[in-house]
Write a protein that binds this DNA or RNA. Structure first.
Lengths: 244, 244
DNA sequence: ACCTGAACACCGTTCAAGT
DNA sequence: ACCTGAACACCGTTCAAGT
């Protein structure tokens, strides 16, 4: 066994030049590997944890090394967003069911966003240019055009839909991302909502009659209800502009 | 003139212990003064410029001093938001015109947000609890109740309206806040939009037929058009749930 | 060409010490 | 009670130097 020098055990005092955190062998740095890592950190700890330094550390290198593959943090986040958009499944357009199909696409986007914490924060305020985001937008446009929605309305509608989905997704995760690390976020959230409800109910009746009266309804969370309400209104509104 | 010792000019080598940037005499620190300063910085340079250190510097003190009056940066930003909400003028409810009045309130909020750069980023993802935000929400609820909108719908609608206004305001300012400091943001923005349009138009026709075909409409900015489109759809959708 | 260490110019927040 | 200096544990990005 020890006849061949190359089989000698490395002596214990010979430490590798850079002790690496992860036991995985280092693969050569690529943009894809960086985006993968950023996505993993995003999923686990949210967007605020995605820092150049953290991603570099996770890859066993220094922050400066990332800049050879990604031009800056904003671009990295946009790449993560487009990677998430790749998960959105799109229907085969059926003109008879275009409204329901448009809703399905919206629900798919929302689900993909929610699977990746507060990634929607990247989406709001970025004109979509990544290939996968464009694929989704193209599908929405195709559905509306098939449904007889005039071009100018369709253009405004993609935008309105996108903003609604972004805002809903951000709201849905912000409270979770904000709760302290150790705690159970669901319990924490319930506690917070109950506090807000009690506060609403305790407001002076003369100045806030409606808020006091419906404090319960205002804080009855129902993530999905809120989304479906906005979605339904939006799609019906778009449909009202369609030529029959 | 020089008979009285107290009138002696201070010798030039006697520097005040802390050379202060601003020539204004320092007023005692209060939460209000801090919020004022934060708002001023926000207006001038946007939310990213509002840091504890910068506000402290502006007030001629160190960042630690702020924590005696404001519990942390998040709270400071919420105080700024509520200060902005104080600018929103609310109509006297007239049940016959509730839909138009609801729109007016939405436009007022949007205008106030836009006057203060990207302050809307604070609003998205915060349950409104400041007195002025509550005043606005109370008014919206009153208008809808007067219009015969059922309580559960009204509760969802305040939310939907708020999210739409937030998202619109954020989008409206993000591109401006992002443009490099020295440049004229309007020119910069126009340049960017033209680039995006050309990019859309150059996409492969087989995969993106609709985006290519309506590249022009998709990038025809029209901030106000986009807002009015969403607002109109939302209010009509809410009204469709009203009992007559 | 790709990677790196070190540095630059920043952050929010805490805390013991001062007045 | 209010304020402060100094420190802690971070940021994104650049750049000259290494391989």
């Amino acid at each position: 066994l020890l006849e061949d020098g190359s089989e000698l055990p490395t002596p214990p005092w010979h430490k590798p030049r850079k002790p690496r955190r992860s036991e995985a062998p280092r693969r050569p740095l690529t943009a894809e590997l960086i985006v993968d890592t950023a996505t993993r950190v995003m999923d686990a700890e949210g967007m605020d944890a995605v820092t150049m330094r953290r991603i570099a550390q996770e890859l066993g290198t220094g922050p400066a090394s990332l800049y050879a593959h990604v031009s800056n943090k904003d671009e990295l986040l946009e790449l993560v967003l487009d990677r998430v958009a790749a998960e959105v499944r799109l229907p085969e357009p059926d003109p008879a069911r275009w409204q329901e199909q448009l809703k399905e696409v919206a629900r798919e986007i929302r689900a993909a966003f929610r699977r990746h914490r507060d990634i929607a924060r990247v989406s709001l305020g970025t004109i979509p240019t990544g290939p996968n985001l464009l694929r989704v937008a193209e599908c929405e446009l195709a559905l509306m055009r098939a449904g007889g929605v005039p071009v100018p309305v369709a253009a405004l509608a993609v935008d309105a839909l996108g903003r609604m989905i972004d805002a809903d997704s951000i709201e849905g995760t912000l409270l979770l991302d904000r709760s302290p690390k150790g705690k159970d976020p669901h319990e924490e959230f319930g506690h917070y909502v109950r506090q807000v409800r009690d506060y609403f109910a305790s407001l002076p009746l003369d100045r806030f009659p409606n808020i006091v009266a419906i404090a319960d309804e205002l804080t009855r969370g129902g993530d999905d209800d809120r989304f479906e309400f906005s979605l339904d209104i939006l799609v019906r509104g778009i449909a009202s502009h369609a030529e029959r």
